[in-house]
Structures are given as structure tokens and as C-alpha cells.
Nucleic acid binder design. Sequence first.
DNA 1: TAAGTTCCCGTTTTT
DNA 2: CGGGAACTTA
Length: 625
Amino acid sequence: MNSYVVHELEFLKELNPSQRTAVELTEGPVLVIAGPGSGKTRVLTYKVAYLIATKKASPMQIVALTFTNKAANEMKRRIVELIGVAGEAVFAGTFHAFAARVLRMFGDKVGIERNFTIYDEKDSQALIKDIIEELGYQHERVLTPSYVYERIERLKERFVTPEDTPMYEYPDREVRNIYREYNVRLQHNNALDFADLLFYAWRVLRESEVARERFSKKYILVDEYQDTNRAQYEILKVLAQKYRNITVVGDEDQSIYRWRGADIHNILDFEKDFPDAKVIRLEENYRSTKRILRVATHLISFNILRKGKQLYTTNPEGDRVKIIEAYDERDEARKVVDIVENAGRNLGDFAILYRTHFQSRTFEEELQRRGIPYVVVGGLRFYERKEVKDALAYLKVLVNPRDTVSLIRVIENPPKGIGKVTLKKLQQYAERHGNSLYGVLREVEAIPDIPARIKGHIITLYQNIERWRHLDVKPAELLDKILGESGYWEWIGDDEERIENLRELIASLREYEELEDYLRTVALFTDIDEWRSDRQKLNLMTLHSVKGLEFPIVILTGLEEGLFPHYKSLNEPEELEEERRLFYVGITRAKERVYITYAMSRRRRVCMRSRFLNELPSEEIDFEW
DNA sequence: TAAGTTCCCGTTTTT
DNA sequence: CGGGAACTTA
């Protein structure tokens, strides 16, 4: 080994023995079971650096898949830190971003056009809502767009087609009918939903040898493996087929996305799927006090679905966990904010965690009252704001005129003299003539039953869109122009916040030369990706958002039956275990102290303290009434 | 027929 | 508190 390489490998000394083994075991399948705070991101980044430094692979031959953009960016940043700019060439991204890239290059192999639109949950639900009405199901109370969407996505993630959808009980048949029509519409709209991205990418990789060659990386690394769903798992299998060098890192005790299709069995059964897999456990915790670790360990031992692990730390013993009872949610907020104010620490040292978003409101009110600065992480997210979605809809239509969901949004915002009745007529006409809604706008003269005045509005809209489509300007400039010419700026008036959001959107567009690139990226972006810690602000977020983060002091709130565990999880033992894992994730975010609160009544209803509180070791706990 | 207004509903977690 | 349905106005 020459001295250059030896120097490059100095960083290995920063790893403990098991971390180092995980890094140095480069060939064959490796499962790393990584407890909270055990340095799993470190293992992943160092492994990438190691592969490159030892010349086992070029950056191009490595793919690192993560669950969030934030994790991906963080990984990339640390790789570059270790080995320099060469690290930029490593693909580090989410499964969905990876899939979108595969489809951009090879989508035509499975009939996907280059300019496809990605539908987010809301877009998809708008489509589903339409279908429900058309099929006459709008009075079936259970068949809400969100319910149906969820059912369909779960089916898609397991590659179940409408035809193969089983029909056991009541709404199955209806769901199947909607599912069938939903797929047809997506195709007409030249659009893919989240599950489609994974499904079609999988098909491309299976069916096209060229694509498989291009994307079969020599080394595959997967973060948060416990949260992968079936489709993601199948993609991994195809990718790993050739070289079989796959390292997955995860913790079954932190699997909290079952409701979104994550299959904990992917990690529990990894050794069955890859019989020659080496298993490494990272059990030394560098984050929390001994006390916190004991409490967390005791709690999670109530779960059955796990591999089990022995966490330990050389950190100090630490303070006992404090449980605080409140009268109601407002009293809870007061007591929580009291803790924060009296601790004499930076506000950024605290995280207030809750099960559901709506709980943030009471805390926000209290904080505003006392003039304490705070951030709500992942509340109503930037890209889900109405004005942002509207603006993006204009851009989407320009790239993909068949995207009817976006086109309708354009028609409605701001209002253009084309109302519900006319819209229905246009849609029906489109349906009958096998044309897209956009195609019909062009031929509006030929449609009967539409007043001339309204036809005028339609023609104006059509001409505007055509003009915008053929403008040869950069994306940011284009959007600015559209917002002006469509009357959007006027429409929102002096709503400062909306204006600011749109300005921000235009600013984010400036980094892009190509509208298509931008739209594909933006569809897979969320707010948490943007969040940066601020020492002077108190952090408020859900337990799901907090995964992967750590804070000196963590306050877990709303420990009440029906809220946490959430009432929807009470019937299924597996779902109850997931709630417990969520609690576990929350506790293990804390470095120094944990506070837990519950209210005796919430929203004027009496409630019972959470069963999870009885699962904490009483000798580690202080109660306060 | 479009668009503005009011009122009532519910609110898990999110790539 | 925002979104949507139902109602009102033009």
C-alpha cells in the first residue's frame, strides 16, 4: 500500500471495532443493525469513502439510497468532506429520486414519456375524487379520496394490479373499480404517482438490459432499511443481482412507516433473502445517558417483532425521566414552556414532540403569548401551500399539457370565467372524443352548449398557455411572467405571506436552466429537507419528523390513550408495536434529559394516560402532579 | 353560470 | 385553521 492510500485511510481510526468491520466488509451482503445513536450514518459515509480510497470502486459505481432527501444530502456532504469533490459523483438520494432518474433515461422502455408529471398525494386524490363521483360512489361514506388513495398505493407497492386486487369484503370491489380507472387516468394524464415511480423503475430494470447495466452499481448502500417497502426491496434485489455487494443499515426498533407500506420483515428476514449475509450489530450508543438508554430499552422490550439488541454507553448516568400531568392541553402547553424557560439553556437545545400535527397549535399559542421564538418542522409544508401548488401547476401544464389535474388547477386559480358547469362539459366532451382536456380547449368552437362569452375566456386561456409554452426564457423568468399575466399577483392582493412564498419559489427556480429538471426534483422535495437547527429557536415537530435527529432535551407530549398510541392503531397488535417504536424513537433522540407529559382532558374530553407510561421502569422515573 | 361568502367539518404519521 | 360544501349575489 503506498503512502498516499495510507494517508487516505487514516479516517478508519475514528471508528470503533464493529463500525470498522461494517466498513471493511465490502464484498457480499451485509446487514448492519444499528441502534439509536450508534453512528450508522458514519458507517455509511465512511464505507463509501473507503470503497473509493481503496480503489475498489469509482464514485460512479456506488449508489447510496436513503429515505429522505435530508439524509441523502447529509451523507453526500460528509462523503465530500472525507474524500473531496470526487464524492460528488456518488449517487446519494431517495429511492424515489433514483427511480425518477431511471425513468428519465429509460422510461420509454416501459411506455413512459420523457415529460411525465409526478403526482403528489393531493394531485392523486383530486383525480380519485373525480372518479369516485363518476362511478357514483360519493355517498359511500368510507370511500373518501384519502382512504382510497391509501388502499391503492398499498396495492401498487406490492405490484398488485387492479385485476389482481382481492375482494374479501365491502369496499374491496369499489376500490378495485376506482383503482382501475385511476390507472387509466394517470396514463391519459401522462402522470405517475409515488408508487408508480418505484413500480415502473423496477420494470425498467428488469426488462431492459441496457438500463440494468447502466444502473447496476458495483456497491449498493441502503440507509433506514427497516422502512423500505416491498417495491423498494424488489428494486434492491434487481440492482444487487449482478455484484451482490449490498450493505443495508437499519434498526427494526425504529421502523415507523408501516402505515405507508414499509415492511419490517424486509429487515427481519434479510438473512433469509441473503443466506450468506454477514450481520453486524452497532450497540454502543454515543448519544444518550445511561438512564435514557435503560428506559428506552425497557420500553421496547414489550415488542415481540424484533431481533433484540444490547445497547450500552460510556456516557454519564444522567437524570431521571420526568413525567408531568396536566389538566388539559393548555395547561400542558404552559407546563412545557415553563420547563423550557426555567432551564436556562438555548432554545435550540429543546425539542417538543407530539404524535399529530394539530397538537402544535396549543404550543404555538402559548409560545406566541410569551414571545418565545420557535420553529414548527414540517407543519404545512412549503410545496403543499396553495399558492405554491398553483404556481407549479402552471409550469407543469407547460411541460405536460395532458396533465389534467394541473390544468384544472390553472383554470380555477385565479378564476378565469370558466366555472364548474363549463368544466364538466369540457371534460365530458374530452371523454367522448378520446381527447385530453387541453386538446378540447383548442377545439372549443366546435362544442355546443357553451355561451360565446365563456368560449372567449377559454380561447384566451388556451392562447396564453400556448404563448407561455413557446417562450424562450429561463424558468424563473417564465414563472414571474405567468404570475403577472394570469393575474395571479393581483388575485392574492397584499397577502404578504403568499407573495413571499411565491418569491421564494421563483428564487429556487433560478438554479435551474431546464424546467423539466426542476419539476422532477421539486415533486420529491419536502420541508424537513430544508430544516436547519437554530440555537435561538425552540423546535416543535412530530415524532415521525424527529427520526434521525438528536437534542439535549426532549419533551414528549400528549401521552394519552387514543392519541399516543393513536386510536387507529389499537386494534392491530402490529400497529400498536409501531406506536411503541415511535415512543422509543422519541426517547432515544435525547442526549441528556427526557420529559413526558399528558393531559387529563383534551378538547374537552376526558382522557386516560397512555399505557406506554406503565411500560417505563418506575425506578428511573419521577412523577410530578 | 360564475364567483364570492359563510359556515361547518375534522385533524396520524409523509417519501 | 384551512378546505370544502352550501348558499347568495351578480
